[in-house]
């Protein structure tokens, strides 16, 4: 399950909002044998650009090579490598949990503790929506598992660097900057 440990790198990649860019980025990862752990693509405040938040598996992907190769893609404008400690990360999860009459109140209680929203209720189950850090989603998933998870979906994380500090130095292009 997702967590913010050292196995993963978060790359925030600003790309031109053009036809085929996702395919170029995804293709580069598969071609070079890098595993993408999660990927979120969204428009930005500037309609010419989109932002991809790519979480890569550090085992398969030497970070420096990943960023250098990504930088060679022409629609890639800028890459920011976000260390977990320097980033605000959030992820959204929807999950349907078994919640019959005997367990419904317990599930509701858990939902309240985690500030989850109940977005759908059936006779035997309810669907929760939880936003938060990947750790928090991991935690509530663990706690909900004993009730019986029917379905679960996570968006993959999005991240921005924390404010009131220097933006993270892009370690990967040290060669160019040093």
């Amino acid at each position: 399950m997702a967590n913010g440990d050292a196995q993963h790198h978060i790359l925030s990649v600003l790309v031109e909002n053009k036809f085929g860019v996702l395919s170029r980025v995804a293709g580069l990862f598969s071609r070079r044998g890098y595993n993408i752990f999660s990927l979120a693509v969204s428009p930005t405040e500037d309609e010419r650009f989109s932002r991809m938040t790519v979480v890569v598996d550090a085992e398969t992907a030497p970070l420096e090579q990943v960023t250098k190769q990504l930088n060679k893609l022409i629609p890639v404008i800028k890459i920011t490598e976000l260390a977990a400690s320097d980033a605000v990360e959030r992820e959204l999860m929807l999950t349907t949990v078994r919640a019959g009459s005997e367990s419904r109140s317990q599930v509701t209680e858990l939902a309240a503790i985690f500030e989850a929203k109940i977005v759908d209720v059936g006779y035997e189950a309810m669907t929760l929506m939880i936003a938060g850090t990947p750790d928090k989603l991991d935690a509530i998933t663990d706690l909900l598992t004993p009730f019986g998870i029917v379905e679960l979906q996570r968006t993959g994380r999005i991240a921005l660097s924390k404010l009131a500090r220097q933006p993270t130095k892009l370690r990967a292009v040290r060669d160019r900057e040093a």
């Binding site: 420096e64 090579q65 250098k68 190769q69 930088n71 060679k72 292009v173 060669d175 160019r176």
Partner: peptide, 17 residues
């Protein structure tokens, strides 16, 4: 001229892009 070549196979002591 390609920064991705520097350190791809062998880590240089002095990389020059």
């Amino acid at each position: 001229i390609d920064p991705a070549e520097l350190g791809k196979v062998r880590r240089p002591d002095v990389p020059i892009v």
